[in-house]
Write a protein that binds this DNA or RNA. Structure first.
Lengths: 175, 175
DNA sequence: TTTACTGCAAATATTTTGCAATATC
DNA sequence: GATATTGCAAAATATTTGCAGTAAA
């Protein structure tokens, strides 16, 4: 799997060649999106990316952002992740060494974990008939905060209401 | 990471204990969903699962299926995956040895790959402060069929229309 | 000059939420 | 008896699509 094979080439050239090969057009919108994506080091969503472009003075429609990011994923400059039920998250390939994610199933929080040897191990595997481009490894479980809440819930088998009062507390008070 | 820690316990008992601990109710709907999920060996979506339940003679609302599957994920009996832009896919934990997925970024096709040593390596990693439950490793790239199409597109730099005719073909024909 | 691309708005698809009726604890 | 759960329908989100105008090749 030749991960990040393109990162030593200028992204604009990679994209340009890709567009030419696929008989697609070099529009200012596409290059504005490319440039902005390449200058974003962190994860981003379509929505946050749209906002960023607006604040940079570019008005590009959501539909165009969707379609262009699909192209950028297709030519290997951008990765696309899907964690919980929320929207997809994107990240540039260049400058983002392969990492994986701890995803809290309870609250949806995502944490990045860098692990060079694991990334290498995963990247080294070849799949006959499948041209791998990148991987997305997500470990699902409970984050620290949600574990704390979990322990609290299990501590007692007494029934508690939303205010954390036991039923007997309530009954006594009513007398 | 204690993956599949519950598979040797009867799923009904696991779920029952979980519900009791969280002060949730043992409803017939929840156990119908549990039973049906546990007897489904393959991936399923909410939609396909709903259809399956109907065909088995259970009428349970989509909202209840959503909420119950969330509980089943939470107590480790079911895993939840998110591949492309389509709906989430679920699978029972028991009887589905850890595997990963080849996902075609072009057509969305998903193929399972079994790899015991890789699964073990991933499962062996501990994360301080994070209680891991399961992992989802997705390799994105092009499947065989989409690679074929890709090669065809790149073969020539002549412009072709949707019927794969070059512009000169069309021009000649028009004369 | 052909046709792909864009923006906008409408359409889809998926998941969540509000509420009244019901069933569990 | 108190309240969590259910089904239904409506709402909220995310993404895709249709179309008319525009621009790249």
């Amino acid at each position: 799997m030749s991960y990040d094979k393109n990162i030593r080439q200028c992204p604009r050239d990679v994209f340009s060649e890709y567009l030419a090969k696929h008989h697609k057009r070099r529009t200012p919108e596409r290059f504005a999106i490319l440039d902005s994506a390449m200058s974003t080091p962190d994860h981003f969503t379509i929505e946050s990316f749209h906002d960023k472009l607006e604040s940079e003075g570019f008005h590009v429609s959501l539909a165009t952002i969707y379609s262009t990011l699909e192209l950028l994923v297709d030519c290997g400059l951008v990765r696309r992740h899907r964690f919980g039920s929320d929207s997809a998250r994107y990240e540039r390939t260049a400058g983002s060494a392969n990492h994986h994610h701890l995803v809290c199933s309870r609250c949806g929080k995502v944490k990045e974990v860098r692990d060079a040897s694991l990334s290498e191990a995963i990247s080294a595997i070849r799949y006959p008939g499948f041209a791998a481009s990148y991987f997305s490894l997500n470990i699902y479980g409970l984050c620290r905060a949600c574990q704390k809440r979990e322990r609290k819930a299990g501590q007692t088998s007494r029934k508690v209401n939303k205010n954390n009062q036991t039923l007997s507390t309530i009954r006594n008070r009513k007398k």
